[in-house]
Design a protein around this nucleic acid. Structure first.
Lengths: 117, 117
DNA sequence: CGGTATCCTGTAAGATACTG
DNA sequence: CAGTATCTTACAGGATACCG
């Protein structure tokens, strides 16, 4: 089964295809926060310390172009821009949740190890 | 629930932590092939066209350092080096499989769209 | 067979400043 | 508030050649 990897149309393994879409230092985390609810730009930013405005903007735009999130601009002053998962993005939910669970367990393991010192 | 993201020990969201470990252009695919069985270096290489020896070597070593795979060197001539998932790496299986399924569905959708033209 | 050793290039990410 | 506009830099990835 795992051998039907390469010979797809584009010669890419589906695993590679999937990972490419969330490749970007902050994309996974951004998607994670959007699992909960629609968020405004600065709301996302506040949840991701260390990301710069420029980088976050770009990554969100790429997610939008790839059809994973929907960006809605409200013609108001001051401007309001909301981001939410698209239907396609919703299908990523189990994966994002699985990553969160895995990462959480991984961290717990790290802590145990350091305490065993 | 999704708000307990930042305030972990290292300030990183678990999603970010998990993604960092499989961040590397070919790591996900390499792990995918190792789901099936233990593979020798060139066996992995053959399954991943376009990856250079140098890069594949480095990514496998990083996976090893992160405890996701186990590298075994047999003192033979010619040399034989086998790679297999570690117990920790095994815990990634559901995620890798989910990525494969997702990527496969995504590609199918792309094809449908292009045919609708 | 399974690597190193060099060298090179593109680009993702970051810092900083400005804007409708 | 939610962005652009510039500029800079590190480094992942790749090409090529050689080795025990």
């Amino acid at each position: 089964m795992t051998d039907d990897c390469p010979p797809t149309t584009d010669g890419k393994c589906p695993v590679e295809t999937a990972l490419e879409l969330i490749d970007g230092k902050w994309k996974g985390v951004a998607l994670f926060h959007l699992l909960d609810k629609t968020l405004r730009f600065n709301e996302i930013r506040r949840r991701i310390p260390n990301v710069t405005q420029r980088v976050l903007t770009r990554q969100l735009r790429e997610l939008e172009q790839d059809g994973l999130i929907i960006r809605t601009v409200y013609a108001e002053v001051p401007p309001r821009v909301e981001y939410r998962l698209s239907p396609l993005g919703e299908t990523l939910r189990p994966i994002i949740v699985a990553l969160w669970n895995w990462g959480t367990a991984y961290k717990a393991r790290q802590i145990e190890e350091s305490e065993a010192a």
